[in-house]
Amino acid sequence: MNIVACFKLVPEEQDIIVNGDRTLNLEKATPKISLYDLNAVEAATELAAAMPDSKVSALSVGGKILENSKARKDILSRGPDALYAVIDPALESALPRETAAALAAAVGKIGSYDLIICGEGSGDLYAQQVGLLLGSLLSVPVINEVSKITAGDGKVTVERTLETEVEVLEVPLPAVVCVTADINTPKIPSMKAILAAGKKPITVWSVTDIGASTGGAPVVMQSILAPAQADRKKVIVEGDSDDKVAAFVESLRKVL
């Protein structure tokens, strides 16, 4: 089976600084693989391991962040056989529609595929759209919230976990699925896998190379601002002796 696992590199949240004017400073934040995309990559690798003659290609589109060699090695150490990166200033802060269009063009350039796997949403924008848009743009079956994948002949059978129901679906290939965060537990790469990652092929394209158009974005981001902090009293008492607990409960009674 020919599998493409899509991922995004995002800034490490712990390193993000909130400026005085509530804008975010991302300059000091190191790139990392978006948390839930690790599940997509793991799902692809597990599926490939269960099917003879399978190949997993990792694919990402974005700006300069994709030049980061540590992150590239990180993704390849998690099982994919090859990495395809579309790096272009036009994709620097692309929103879902532009991202999906670039991914669709890149998939076309990679060639044939059976299954494309995406995560539930990225750690930065968490738009939860890209995989669904990608499948629709490619005019193939696409479904989200997939919590289990079983490969079949020319199809996959998936479980889809919704708010109160689970659906078991038969999805003809080629297709796109978006997996949930609890479909698997991503493995920590072994030393051997990390060493092998350095030898795997990396292909870099620009938007022109893949023949994607980037104009006419249907949505524009106006601002990203940290919310004003709610004013809290911050009356903190140290110690859990009886009188301190009693005083704590007294404060509690006052708001009941």
């Binding site: 949240e13 993000i16 909130v18 509530r22 975010l24 929103l95 750690g123 930065d124 924008l125 968490y126 949505v219 524009v220 981001m221 106006q222 601002s223 990203i224 601002l225 940290a226 919310p227």
Partner: peptide, 9 residues
């Protein structure tokens, strides 16, 4: 960003 900020689109 995990709730760190609000995006206006």
């Amino acid at each position: 960003f995990g709730g760190l900020a609000v995006g206006t689109e």
